[in-house]
Design a protein around this nucleic acid. Structure first.
Lengths: 264, 264
DNA sequence: TAGTGGTCTAGACCACTTC
DNA sequence: AAGTGGTCTAGACCACTAA
């Protein structure tokens, strides 16, 4: 038999999905459900935690447990890297993407922090650098309004970006044009990419930064960006709140017996 | 301050990752930790559940809590669809992939179930069919040895597969060549694909089928397969244990101002 | 100060496995 | 029967919010 807390959670989940509880509506308070005979405080609490883990509600002390706004998944396709968006204009690729997706542009949705650090093993490997080599790390926390959605940290080789706007230590939003534009101006035009994605449990720090409910997972994205001659000019690690994103990729079915027309 | 159960969980997680507890080793029993003053039974239990949710341990009644074998992420790249694998030989694409990845081939790692059903909304949309249209559904549960790793359900239009091996109701492993080969033989050579992926909480049924620990998430994959003229010949939905997979995609940076050489 | 969720406890009892 | 994890309870106490 399903545990009592699970049955209770499923009942509420059903009611939320059916619209019986609208976004913003408040669920009964734990103590009231206890009085109503739904179980002990701990049992009801467990049910509420399950709903929270599914991203259906948000709980906070003092306030209560309210149904969360169900923002549709943000779909990330490779069109967000379109050269026309950052090469010909002065928009940062991610902002252009937001415009293209019909969302308004808001200032200060990105905080940035640039530093020179010893490359973590994964980064060194991606750049083909020896252990202990230094790279520039550009860490951003991206928000949708007030809600943080993901972190994105780009790693660059010093010889590619030294003296450019990328390493400008001034805080605040990214300089005009974004990282790809800066690389382009420095003579490194990006050509192809590799993205690798997987899901995992967030660290406590990440959960706090992204305002994740306990039990929510994150999706980690590794992006390697190459110039036409195969030089790696950027390696980036993104950590996304798993409930808020979907990724889409279009590709030709490969045919290793007939490799014309394919670069790899 | 971090809760007590979290501190306890983090301590064990650290010990497991550092190798102090090897795979297969048993963690102290809950009652012993209670005696040792680590907290009440419920508190220690909560810590163990957290470890389980991270995929680090497996608990079972009667046995105990043992450190799980850390199978490395299985990386899924588009090379697994290589035409050479299924067109020229008689191997099913997924088996070829396993061979290519150095894993031995084992029989009966896939159970299959074919039926004719009314297309679910998502499927109808992908195939461009009206509501209520019927399709063939081919559902598989794929295992790695005894461990189920993912489910994969392919949906085909009846006019594409009627009379082929795909709709052969005989149970057991897939016919020789797999679905793409059957479509190829029927005159539908696959050409390009779209994959869309996102993470979510599993249903209770999925958790059971994939033997997921409570708190583990799944990644859902939507794959649409097209012929050269844009006809959709297969739409598939996969549900993967999130901790066991990573996806990789290579692509050219798009340039909408210069669309030569791109089919989309 | 009152009201909300969050943690913790001690102990009862249940479910499953092994002997 | 004995030993393991899993659920549930009643109540104490804590942390945070609002008035």
């Amino acid at each position: 038999m399903a545990p009592k807390w699970r049955e209770l959670a499923d009942r509420f989940a059903e009611q939320i999905r059916s619209g019986e509880y609208e976004p913003g509506a408040q669920l009964p308070q734990i103590r009231d459900l206890v009085k109503a005979g739904e179980g002990s405080k701990d049992t009801v609490h467990k049910a509420y935690k399950a709903l929270e883990a599914q991203g259906l509600v948000t709980s906070s002390r003092g306030h209560g447990t309210v149904v969360r706004q169900q923002t549709p998944l943000k779909r990330l396709g490779i069109a967000r890297y379109d050269k026309a968006k950052w090469r010909d204009g002065d928009e940062v690729a991610f902002i252009a993407d937001r415009v293209a997706s019909g969302r308004p542009y808001r200032r200060n949705e990105q905080t940035q922090n640039v530093s020179r650090v010893v490359a973590p093993p994964l980064v060194a490997e991606a750049h083909g650098l020896p252990e202990g080599a230094e790279v520039y790390a550009r860490a951003r926390l991206v928000k949708e309004g007030t809600q943080p959605t993901h972190t994105l940290t780009s790693y660059y080789r010093p010889e590619h970006v030294e003296g450019t706007r990328i390493v400008d230590p001034s805080p605040g939003p990214a300089g005009r044009g974004g990282g790809f534009r800066v690389l382009y101006d420095a003579g490194y035009e990006i050509d192809h990419m590799k993205e690798e994605i997987f899901a995992r449990v967030p660290s406590e720090e990440e959960a706090q930064l992204l305002q994740l409910s306990p039990g929510e997972w994150v999706v980690e994205l590794h992006r390697t960006t190459y110039t036409a001659d195969g030089t790696v000019v950027e390696f980036a690690i993104g950590v996304h709140a798993a409930t808020r994103f979907a990724w889409a990729y279009d590709f030709k079915v490969p045919d290793s017996a007939n490799t014309e027309g394919e670069s790899k």
